[in-house]
C-alpha cells in the first residue's frame, strides 16, 4: 500500500510538472513538504479512491501522509 500511495503521489506531481519525491514518511505535510495545491489534492483523492475504493477527503480535509494511511485503514 505504501509503495502504491508513493507512486500515486508522484503521478500527481508529474502531471503538474512538479519535483517528484524519493521517499515517503508519515510526518510529511501534503502541501508544505510535498508541494500539493488544492487541485493536486483533488487529483490525489480521485486516484487513491480508484485504487483503494476510499474517498480520503470524504470525512474532511487531511494534511499529512500519515493521515492518508489512517483513512485507508
Amino acid at each position: 500500500m505504501r509503495d502504491t500511495v508513493h507512486q500515486i503521489i508522484n503521478t500527481v506531481l508529474a502531471n503538474r510538472g512538479k519535483k517528484l519525491i524519493d521517499s515517503l514518511n508519515d510526518s510529511m505535510r501534503l502541501r508544505d513538504d510535498i508541494g500539493f495545491d488544492s487541485l493536486d489534492l483533488a487529483e490525489l483523492t480521485v486516484r487513491i479512491e480508484a485504487q483503494f475504493n476510499v474517498d480520503i477527503f470524504e470525512k474532511g480535509i487531511i494534511s499529512t501522509v500519515g493521515e492518508i494511511f489512517e483513512r485507508l485503514k
Binding site: 502531471n15 483533488a42 487529483e43 480521485v46 486516484r47 479512491e49 480508484a50
Partner: peptide, 9 residues
C-alpha cells in the same frame, strides 16, 4: 465528471 477527467487526464 471532473473526477473521471482527473483520473484519466
Amino acid at each position: 465528471c471532473i473526477r473521471n477527467m482527473l483520473l484519466h487526464n
